[in-house]
Design a protein around this nucleic acid. Structure first.
Lengths: 124, 124
DNA sequence: AATTCAATTCATCATATGATGACATATTGA
DNA sequence: TCAATATGTCATCATATGATGAATTGAATT
């Protein structure tokens, strides 16, 4: 077994059995990409506040903007991204556009993450 | 009631009751920040693959790098970030550094997101 | 039709971030 | 001590991204 210039790890696993077992369980690249995109959307404070607000009920852009102290353009851009990934529903009522969470899983993600953060904060 | 140049929404809510109810339930800014940071860490495909691999068992940097086809420097940098937010545990065994998920909530986030994505993909 | 206002789109800018290579560190064994 | 190897750190670069203001669209009211 020839050794490469950069060491054994280039051609051989240290723990072959563990690697093979784990490799077989990895999600497909497509699924990972969509998951990462979803997490990424929740990974901005402003956008996360929008999502959290909507997890308690639908709101129009105008009220979201005022309540969060964020410009309407910014709110609108964030909602466009969230809509693109189907994280929010859209409803038009006259001049107003109402948004709400599209999916119980989204609220579930917030809840799970909140638990993690609280557990982390109390542990430190 | 004076109207501002930019309209009523600057000084008044459209749905005052809904806004007040929702505003009272918003998480604190600090908690939101940590949550966003956590989501953001999961919001990169490479890092998410690292986390998903670790959700099935601990691995060393070397095996992670080979298994995922990602440079060791990149893996190391990602693990440093994950360690900073305490998403992973660190264990040293001789020359090797083994990492594992720190928290069941992390695996829970992956599972919840996976369910969401699968539901979304089958719906479309 | 004209006006008003909420919402959206677009271009721009400053900043954040992931990948990479060079270099440093740490541990094992000769 | 010296060599080999796995890991970590740092600087750099290209790219991605959030905030903002100007311009536009769409709907209701007069």
């Amino acid at each position: 077994m020839a050794k490469s210039k950069e060491g054994m790890c280039e051609v051989l696993y240290v723990n072959t059995k563990a690697v093979k077992k784990i490799a077989a369980r990895m999600a497909s690249g497509d699924v990972i990409s969509v998951m990462a995109e979803t997490f990424s959307l929740l990974g901005d404070s402003t956008r996360l506040r929008v999502v959290q607000a909507l997890s308690h009920g639908e709101l129009c852009v105008c009220d979201l903007s005022a309540m969060l102290g964020v410009g309407r353009t910014a709110v609108s851009n964030h909602l466009r991204l969230l809509r693109g990934m189907r994280l929010v529903n859209y409803r038009r009522d006259g001049k107003l556009a109402y948004y709400s969470l599209a999916d119980d899983h989204i609220a579930g993600l917030l809840a799970e993450c909140l638990e993690h953060v609280q557990a982390m904060l109390t542990a430190s």
